[in-house]
Design a protein around this nucleic acid. Sequence first.
DNA 1: AATTAAAAGCGAAACGTTTCAATTAAGCGA
DNA 2: TCGCTTAATTGAAACGTTTCGCTTTTAATT
Lengths: 318, 318
Amino acid sequence: MANIKDVAKIAGCSISTVSYALNDDKRIPEVTALRIKKIANDIGYLPSAAARNLKKKNTRTVLVAISDFGGPVYHELLDGIHYELTKHSYTMIVSTGSSTDNLLKERMADGTIISDINISNQTLKQISKILKPIIILDRKLDNTDLVDMTIDNYDAMYRLTEDVIIKGYRKIAFCHGVKKTHDNEYRFKGFKDALENRNLEIFAEYVGNFTKISGTIIAEELIKSNQLPEMIVCANDEMAIGIMEVLQTEGYEIPKNIGVSGFDDIELASYFSPKLSSVRINRFEWGRKVAKTMLSLLTKEKIVVKKEHGELKIRDSY
Amino acid sequence: MANIKDVAKIAGCSISTVSYALNDDKRIPEVTALRIKKIANDIGYLPSAAARNLKKKNTRTVLVAISDFGGPVYHELLDGIHYELTKHSYTMIVSTGSSTDNLLKERMADGTIISDINISNQTLKQISKILKPIIILDRKLDNTDLVDMTIDNYDAMYRLTEDVIIKGYRKIAFCHGVKKTHDNEYRFKGFKDALENRNLEIFAEYVGNFTKISGTIIAEELIKSNQLPEMIVCANDEMAIGIMEVLQTEGYEIPKNIGVSGFDDIELASYFSPKLSSVRINRFEWGRKVAKTMLSLLTKEKIVVKKEHGELKIRDSY
DNA sequence: AATTAAAAGCGAAACGTTTCAATTAAGCGA
DNA sequence: TCGCTTAATTGAAACGTTTCGCTTTTAATT
């Protein structure tokens, strides 16, 4: 693998001249720079990121750590982050699972954005002392240097629930996702407060884990118990779809016999029949805001970014 | 940021001892190693990836470059690659778009896996001379050091088409995706050969670009032209769904009036009504094979991996 | 032709590791 | 106690860049 020395030798100049030329330093006249660049290109010279990062003490790279590539939730977020990062000539790398662990233990990126439910609060606290800046998207953690940029779950769910009540539903149940997660907590709080402010009681609470399959299980047990609510407000779309599927195969009509709502507005939401009412978060915009914040953290500028609000998508499922 | 020198100073030993201790070299007695590790941990020492990569001339990292995070196609593939890579204590990083360009221009990973339609053959050829090993998933490129591991599009589409013929369809059209792509080419070839071997003519060819929207446009024009086939074999699911949507809103019943098939078996395929007949590729397994191959390339071992075959998922759309 | 300023180019140190080869310390049998 | 082997530790070079400060060359001005 050719290195800068090889280029210098062929060009008949010093290493520093090559370096300056390749980095478009104005002290190298254009004609020499061009000549050197051509040589570099001809012999297939690629600069060593390792050497440069070592010397410059930065990488112009941001790491985004996510739970999995699977969920229907991430891609717009990633696109948004990517859009903003590359606009400022930063590079984005994405990782999951144990790759994230490796990446975090070494310092391969200048900044880190985390939305990974599998990383414990404890490890998060620990690394936050050493590795900065870090933005977290999936929780709040006080007394740390972590910057949290969660979406406004509370507000959106509050408004959705209000709409449900206005439509006339009274026996309203809530289907939890994973209990201690930020998303679930704040969505539930929004739901609860909306009911309380109208002097309504929570009809029942079920708890799933944000997956479709957990929704189906809940629905099956619900039917057995024969204690059906008029409406089930779910902490996310996937559970809502699981619930609806079972309900339908068991002969219940939605929304005629029972209403269901979701959260996230995944693609499936508008393909399911009936179309699922949900909350849409503009995740591309969210991603952009997150990236902007990261950029400002990286350059030590202070900027203020507003929380990303949700948009109600009321369709046919209640 | 603490470095190895700081650790050495506190531990009262040399840099080399710290390095050996931290890397579990057997020449350092366990008790010293433990002591040193504790100190390192206490002062929040994280080794510099840059320095280590520079010295060791490797990164134990594999870069996966994909077209976008959006498509419903990638995540299982990524999961498969990740599974195998981390099993061998490699780290996987993923990138798109211009981030990929940056990453490719520097040598941040030991190996690269590419499935990115946006990278031209030309650049691919160029970098393949310099940057090795590279595995490409989305095309074949002769006379290069690129290792291609495309799926067996031909075989799967051949079998699907045979099934279509057996079901009695005769006026069969093909809906292309982006024309020069490997996927489209081989899927079409499989389709064509299957018809030829039964002495059937291609009823018509339409060309889209793999997106749903292109499917809708095709369907709209088709209806206008009034030249409907009995069956449309599509190069992927998304176009098939676009076509079906338009057909249905225009009053055609599927599969009663016209049959449609897809390819890829995306999640939506089995949620759409009617359920879309398609071809399922076990992308997780595919990913594992790809990663295994990469690993063997990285260690210079020779291993042979078989092409990933598709499984017919015949449902209700024809 | 002499002086000076500006332009172009260069040498060497530094970044933080790993690892070879060498040194020092310890253990042990006689 | 002496030598000898093995264990523990260390010094220093090397990896491939960037960049500071200096030297040489060229051009401009008198």
